[in-house]
Design a protein around this nucleic acid. Sequence first.
RNA 1: GGGCGCGUAGCUCAGUUGGCAGAGCAGCUCCCUUACAAGGAGCAGGUCACAGGUUCAAGUCCUGUUGCGCCCACCA
Length: 875
Amino acid sequence: MSAQPVQPATPTTDLPIEPRVPERPALEGLEERWDARWNQAQTYRFDTGATRDRVYSIDTPPPTVSGSLHVGHVFSYTHTDIVARYQRMAGKQVFYPMGWDDNGLPTERRVQNYYGVRCDPSLPYEPGFVPPHDGDAKSVKAADQVPVSRRNFVELCERLSGEDEKQFEALWRRLGLSIDWSQTYQTIGSSARAASQRAFLRNLARGEVYQAEAPTLWDVTFRTAVAQAELEDRVTPGAYHRIGFHSLAADKPVYIETTRPELLPACVALVAHPDDARYQPLFGTTVRTPLFDVEVPVVAHRLAEPDKGSGIAMICTFGDVTDVVWWRELHLPTRAILGWDGRLLANPPLGLDSPGGRAVYDEIAGKTPFSARARLVELLGESGDLVGAPTPITHPVKFFEKGDRPLEIVTTRQWYIRNGGLDGGVRAALLARGRELRWYPDFMRVRYENWVEGLTSDWLISRQRFFGVPFPVWYPLDDDGAPDYAQPLAASESSLPVDPSSDTPPGYSPSQRGMPGGFVGDPDVMDTWATSSLTPEIAGGWSTDSDLFARVFPMDLRPQAQDIIRTWLFATVVRSHLEFNSLPFANAAISGFILDPDRKKMSKSKGNVVTPMGLLERHGSDAVRYWAASARLGTDAEFSEGQMKIGRRLAIKLLNASKFALGFLTEGGPRLSPEAVTEPLDRACLAALAEVVERSGAALAEYDHTRALELTETFFWTFCDNYIELIKDRVHGRAGEVAAASARAALGLALDAVLRLFAPFLPFATEEVWSWWHQGSVHLASWPSGGNLREAAAGATRDALDAAGAVLTALRKVKSEAKVSMRAEIESAEIGVPSALFAAADSAHGDIAAAGRTRVLTLTPTNADTPTIIAATLA
RNA sequence: GGGCGCGUAGCUCAGUUGGCAGAGCAGCUCCCUUACAAGGAGCAGGUCACAGGUUCAAGUCCUGUUGCGCCCACCA
């Protein structure tokens, strides 16, 4: 994406230079200026020569390019950037790539709507294809979309994604993400397809993927199988229909209650709980289905719930996943009636033989379940088998998360990856991986464990779609032209990526496609998670750049949202566990969501929608980052422009305080010599800062950015409001040159450290100030050293700073109560100081008196907790 | 039905191994301009959801209750 540089940017020196401070420092324009400079200087470029122990690698979430970025993205990507910037300053080479997710249904739909085309893998590639529309083809009906080959479709996708990527990159740059823009990938790109197919082939060779013909949850709109991870329950209205089955063993009908009477022709048994005395006499007998007159057994199973409906249920093939369990465990026959299109099959199922039953089935064949139900309810009413009126209820129904019609269950041949859903050993190993991974916050681990423990099937990775990564396999055709699915023909790894719909398997010629004795390509594509579960491998250059891969894999960090732990995180762990027998990353940082209770009100009154770029322009990027940084990982945060204003104020304060401090460092270059710091107050300030440096760095190393920011911010306000005020007189030289030099050196040392401390949070303001008096970037400077500051403090504690600040507060209170200006002079004051603080306060006596404009200041030890005003006389 | 998280000042939230309840914002009273009015000083404001228990001592640990949010769960 970015041009290749001649050589990696040299980490430039951060030696101080003669400060050049603007007359009126401002935040405006800093984003454009510094983004351009960082880009030009390759500030964030990953050094591909760094050894693994010096590398910190991040498995960045690839945003879906067909969607749009919102404040939630700004929020969580800022958290990651803070980590990246801290690790870089802590001495690591940071591998911080960016991926674009353009694989999957959202992109497929967007390409269709944008260009007016649809993907048809049976078509040949058409070089130079020009789509019928370019920009708005939403009104084009599905039937009028121009069919194109898969390769053409993928090309259009890449073209469209390219536009989105530019906008996304512009936003990330504006936000100040320190991404290495030479490291980008697309999930539908060639290398991602190759990686996805390579991983599949290796799984296949080791027996970790397999095909099975089995009942599968099926979306009738998209006409594709759906995986367990993509399901969601929606509470949906329905109705219990009480229907009588004719019993040969009992003298009256057996009543079941069902919400899906249209599945009556698919009924293969009735089931009740083995302990249910009402139905025990019927176990082992048979009943006949109403209307269809099919003889079915009455069976017992522990999953039948006595208090649900009438306590006895009909088992159909297949109405729900419980039916599948019953069917499998009780070895029942199959009477499928639903087709891939979600309509009832044209022909009645096996065993539906009576002329009367066939006549009824003919009436509903080809109908949707909805209309078949309506007709059957009529017929059941007429025959007297339906008792009373249906009882309306609401109940949870399974949906594809992107679909809007209930899922059906259809028997199909699919590919599965063994993920522990059916294998206790694999499951235990994956649970162990979950414990091996360090989670931030730790309780998110439970979501992983709950999910793995609740798996009921292997991971279904095939989708009956056209756009996506195809399975790199073909099937030999026998002499009758029937495929032999048991003997798939695998592509060679060196040929990847392949498209079996247009490429030819090894050992065959193109003319043998579809011919007896020839071959046919696997028509399906992989689930999008089957590819995005390989982001560490794709970004890290697995099998394409083994040198890079060895330096970055396993990654150090996976940042991601909490709602895709069961999908993205778990799937990535599965693939890495199978391929490398390791975790794909050592740490997982889980972000919370953004809550916006006032969004409606805000939009209404202001008449505009909150877009990320608008926020950045309105408040400044540092301000928005400050808001994001003030929320902890894993915690939902309130969208708060008020918090952004506070961040903005902080950034401006930083500019102004820096301007003040640097004003005293202009002559003869900045003075950062620790030996010059001799005054107790100055030493105390540096001692306090040393502690902040150490605690803040420790917090960032543990992904606790809120703590780090809070520590730094608290120190900074004390620094501005108390320390600077206390030394103002002295730094001007009114207490002599030695005392002035001490203050100036301390100011310089403190400012230097404070800028580094704030750099991960406020990259623009800190870089701006840094440039006033340093060569190079603050973002390539090292994290400040607490030890150096302690050395300059020469054994002092922070007590003098705290004590002097507290006494100064007392003097300010004198003026505040007298309602006079803080500049007003006090003739004389006697302040009682807690004994424990007395020596510390007394050591800064001159500074306090000067800052408090008190001609005669007397400090007296007392037993009170805080300094108290004993006597004061205004001048 | 199971699990996880949360409940602290008007609002948003800190509160570490139990040791005198904190910050910011909002509010109130003041101070204008020699780094900064997108500034500064001061003040006021809490039954730590509720009920038990452990302890010299509980916002913090244990048990239960309750409210809110999220995740999972088997559609008869």
